[in-house]
């Protein structure tokens, strides 16, 4: 199908603009209150609202395009772009880790692709854009947060524990043995929010996927089943990503001869 016709069709679908406008009125009210109370938030509110509008509408068009093409190649390209953006974002967060973007790219990429592959091969979802793109988005988004958390926690922890780690190395421990505590802590720190959410799901708040399905008219029971799939797959994805990120971060900080690299000046350079 002709791309231009498609865009034309899609433009015709912007029939919810009045409702968006009404929702935007809430932001305007918030802005007025901010001005009245001199909270100085009006400018941020305005720019973030405009940005969200443009960003989401643009994404909407891209998705519309890819969904209508229904071509596995386009779906894959879109997934790869999402992974690349996630890696860049996460890489910027983990500045202390040398080569953070690569650590993020490999851990998010492998973690997400592995999880998606299991879901598709097991037949939970078909490899069609309207399933794979939103599911992939959730997986990649969570993997991104996990990668950032693991890299940050572990690099901080390794540098702060330099004394203890070098004491262990000096006693003949391997770098793996000397950094096991930091490895475990970084992984636990990133996993615990997911485990806790999994424990209390539905009791405290209805998760996003379920809320979306119910709003879109699905029955609560259908929504619950999808939510369970989503939750299990996210636990899987963050575990894969967290493990890979922790392993790669550890590799970045040690040499092959079990030396902790001097990435921050040693306390005594004497």
């Amino acid at each position: 199908m002709d791309v231009l016709t498609e865009i034309g069709d899609a433009l015709g679908n912007l029939d919810d603009l009045p409702r968006i406008g009404l929702a935007l009125a809430l932001v305007a009210v918030a802005g007025l209150i901010s001005r009245w109370q001199q909270a100085d938030l009006e400018k941020d509110l305005l720019t973030s609202s405009v940005r969200a509008f443009i960003q989401l509408i643009a994404v909407g068009y891209v998705l519309e395009l890819v969904f209508n093409q229904d071509n596995p190649l386009w779906t894959t390209v879109l997934l790869l772009v999402m992974i690349a953006i996630a890696a860049r974002t996460s890489g910027r967060r983990g500045k202390q880790t040398p080569g953070a973007t690569w650590v993020a790219l490999v851990s998010i990429g492998v973690g997400s692709v592995l999880t998606l592959a299991v879901l598709v091969i097991a037949g939970v979802f078909d490899y069609v854009p309207d399933a794979i793109i939103p599911i992939g988005g959730m997986i990649i988004g969570n993997a991104m947060t996990t990668a950032s958390q693991v890299m940050n926690r572990m690099s901080d922890d390794l540098l702060d524990s330099r004394n203890q780690i070098e004491s262990m190395l000096a006693l003949g421990a391997t770098s793996r043995q000397a950094s096991l505590v930091q490895f475990r802590r970084a992984l636990r720190n990133a996993m615990i929010p997911h485990i806790d959410t999994t424990k209390t799901v539905g009791l405290i708040k209805l998760p996003g996927a379920m809320t979306g399905m119910i709003l879109a008219g699905a029955s609560p029971l259908q929504a619950v089943q999808l939510q369970l799939i989503v939750m299990y797959m996210l636990v899987g994805a963050v575990t894969f990503t967290g493990l890979i990120a922790a392993y790669l971060t550890y590799r970045v900080f040690f040499t092959g001869a079990h030396q902790l690299k001097a990435l921050r000046p040693a306390p005594d350079a004497g």
């Binding site: 004394n163 203890q164 070098e166 004491s167 262990m168 190395l169 000096a170 006693l171 003949g172 421990a173 391997t174 001869a257 079990h258 306390p267 005594d268």
Partner: peptide
């Protein structure tokens, strides 16, 4: 092997780290 060298050549640091 580096782990063997470090057993033969022990080291004690300025800031003691008790495990």
């Amino acid at each position: 092997p580096v782990t063997e060298v470090r057993c033969r050549v022990g080291m004690v640091f300025q800031q003691v780290a008790m495990f």
